[in-house]
Nucleic acid binder design. Sequence first.
DNA 1: AACGCTTCTTAGCGATTGTTAACGAATTCG
DNA 2: CGAATTCGTTAACAATCGCTAAGAAGCGTT
Lengths: 199, 199
Amino acid sequence: MPHRLRAWFSKFGPVPDEAWAALTPHVRPQALARHAAFVQPGDHDLLFGFLLTGAARQFYLLPDGIERTTYFFFQHDALADYRACILGQPAALTIEALTPCDLLTVPYAVLQALYDAFPAWERIGRRIAEYVAAGLEARLVETLTLSPEARYRLLVATPAKHKLLEQVPQHLLAAYLGITPVSLSRIRARLASGGAARL
Amino acid sequence: MPHRLRAWFSKFGPVPDEAWAALTPHVRPQALARHAAFVQPGDHDLLFGFLLTGAARQFYLLPDGIERTTYFFFQHDALADYRACILGQPAALTIEALTPCDLLTVPYAVLQALYDAFPAWERIGRRIAEYVAAGLEARLVETLTLSPEARYRLLVATPAKHKLLEQVPQHLLAAYLGITPVSLSRIRARLASGGAARL
DNA sequence: AACGCTTCTTAGCGATTGTTAACGAATTCG
DNA sequence: CGAATTCGTTAACAATCGCTAAGAAGCGTT
């Protein structure tokens, strides 16, 4: 059932039938148990993934064994070590299922070949990259500009991000905000008592 | 003399003569005095710029009048309110000359038209967006993951970023690192006395 | 139902950061 | 060239944050 996947790509530009037909044979379903990894550091031949159901997180494993979670994926999101795909390098991060996941995968190499072969895919590839860049820029500015508490308040005030509040354990959300779990807990306590907070 | 500009685009993919010829008539030189703005919040019909000489900074002007510098541009860098160009929105930030600048400009609308008209340009547009995304992701992870002091140490330990140390006043560099000028001064003092720092 | 693991909260302590302010040095501009 | 602005450092104080640790609550599993 790759309808959903086609709809996702279509958000970035029209997907003509022949372009779609060229992708379709390479789409594979994949299931992930809780805590199973979709990518791991050092992996080659990376996959592009599309989350049909479930939720996943992405984290960097630091040399000292500490995990740094930086992003989450939910139903109908695409997921990949995008940076590694783009730069043609082995994976540098781990993407791990937070819940059991069903997903569709396409080798990133196939996407790259489609970029070459179909203007429609190249267009979509450009728009995806632009979309990713725009999102990262917004988040970077937030992180540089706002205090931890202000970042959390902004998150709470942004309905589009409430999936994070609802589906992500707090200590992982803390990492996403660039703070420690203890700090986030304190911030929440402060805001809960301190009364209504304006942004 | 748009040779330099062509070389810049060529970093992302081949620029056939006919593709180049289609761009060339739209290239305009522009000079910026110190502190002059290349873009300002609210601007429409945004330009893509290419810095021939000089340096510039990008900042967001907050409602309370505070400036938040988030990026710098040096010789042979491209500059634009990329996010606004991509999303087709009016500019949200200011790009201002740190020193007198000479640059070349192309209306972003022209680039978009070229994306449609030439596969070579579409390819280059994709690679630029991917490059930007990869850079932003790296910086975001740094910012989320490292302490202010660690971020500064990393900067010092990264030769590729020494243009920042050399050409940017310290209080602006502090903003780039997401800290206050006072803090950066203290960090520097700490590291200067505290002896050799491992990363 | 009981066990164990994960998650969240709270506390204490030390260190870093933000804020404000003052001073001198450097730079810019008229 | 001189005055005005900008820039960097330092100090003092309050607030926040990271770290460590302990305990309670929740959840899943057997």
